[in-house]
């Protein structure tokens, strides 16, 4: 387990985080498989887009 997670890049950790949180949110707030799958996809993509967007916004300040 340590070997599996210890070497994760920031992006890989973000993917794992986004997937797990979106699945939990879907089960907390939606009923039915179809609704949950749709919600997981939306939240997962929203996490990625927002994170990448904020990353780009912060890029000029990294130098």
């Amino acid at each position: 387990m340590n070997g599996l997670f210890a070497g994760l890049t920031h992006f890989q950790a973000l993917l794992f985080f986004a997937l797990v949180v979106s699945v939990t949110f879907a089960f907390l707030s939606k009923r039915g498989a179809a609704e949950r799958v749709e919600y997981v996809l939306w939240v997962f993509l929203a996490f990625l887009l927002v994170a990448i967007g904020i990353g780009w916004l912060m890029y000029p300040f990294s130098r």
């Binding site: 387990m1 997670f5 210890a6 994760l8 699945v23």
Partner: peptide, 22 residues
């Protein structure tokens, strides 16, 4: 049953991953 399994796996997975990443 379904929610129980999902919540255990998701919370446990995140917690164990966090600990594995030290």
């Amino acid at each position: 049953w379904g929610k129980a399994a999902v919540y255990f796996l998701c919370v446990g997975g995140l917690a164990c991953a966090g600990l594995a990443m030290r």
